[in-house]
Design a protein around this nucleic acid. Structure first.
Length: 223
DNA sequence: GCGACAG
DNA sequence: ATCTTGTCGC
């Protein structure tokens, strides 16, 4: 087992972080037509990854298009280096999408990362898309529990700097960790998540992508 | 050295 | 993330 030299990857992340834009470039709400969700799944000890990007209409959230990719996950899961594991398959999905969505929501952190380079940000810089990081649990940063009502939020802070928001998407349920991926600001990132979340904890685009990758994995026959 | 640690 | 059974609460 040759251990992985993470040093150059960390350096690369630090350089890529300089390319991230936190200025909002999301179209006006009335002009947004599509929002996509992406996800990757794999078997417990398998190297095969199943990725998908699902595009939904906005604001009605109806299925419009999808693209999938299946292939080996060459890189292991290392906290802080998730994009090196999942990005390749997601980029394959992205390039095969005929019509690029107005925004992409990733099932991971964006700016809320030790070096401001979570998967959502890396995906954004690599594609030029407007992206948002939407994680179910915290990677880094400190926060106070937001109020119990849907829409309540609190700041996620790292080294006295805001890196994201802890957002309650339904009354009384565990909040999500939202952060800009690329070309969007904190306020619009959380607002977009709320607008594409119906009656469940997770945004519909993420749910759609999650269902698809799991279906893909179950239909696949190897391990 | 110890604890934390997206998916 | 995945695996995995029952179980607690509304």
């Amino acid at each position: 087992m040759s251990p992985i030299d993470t040093k150059p990857l960390v350096t690369l992340q630090e350089q890529l972080a300089g390319l991230v834009s936190l200025k909002n470039q999301l179209p006006a709400w009335k002009k947004i037509r599509t929002v996509a969700g992406c996800d990757v799944s794999c078997r417990k000890h398998g190297k095969t990854g199943y990725a998908a990007i699902v595009v939904l209409s906005f604001p009605d959230l109806k299925y419009l298009a999808r693209q999938t990719a299946v292939g080996p996950l060459e890189f292991p899961y290392i906290p802080g280096l998730l994009s090196f594991r999942e990005l390749p398959l997601l980029l394959e999905c992205w390039q095969n999408l005929e019509e690029k969505p107005d925004a992409v929501i990733c099932d991971a952190q964006g700016f809320a990362h030790p070096r401001g380079m979570g998967l959502a940000s890396h995906f954004g810089v690599a594609t030029g898309a407007v992206t948002v990081g939407c994680a179910k649990t915290r990677l880094t940063g400190e926060f106070e529990q937001p109020d119990t009502e849907r829409g309540s939020r609190s700041d996620l802070v790292l080294n006295n700097k805001k890196i994201g928001e802890v957002l309650r998407t339904q009354d009384g349920i565990k909040p999500l960790f939202i952060s800009p991926g690329h070309r969007i600001d904190f306020r619009h990132a959380s607002e977009l998540i709320l607008r594409v979340t119906s009656i469940f904890r997770l945004p519909e685009p993420i749910r759609a992508a999650h269902r698809l990758v799991n279906q893909l994995r179950m239909e696949h026959n190897d391990r």
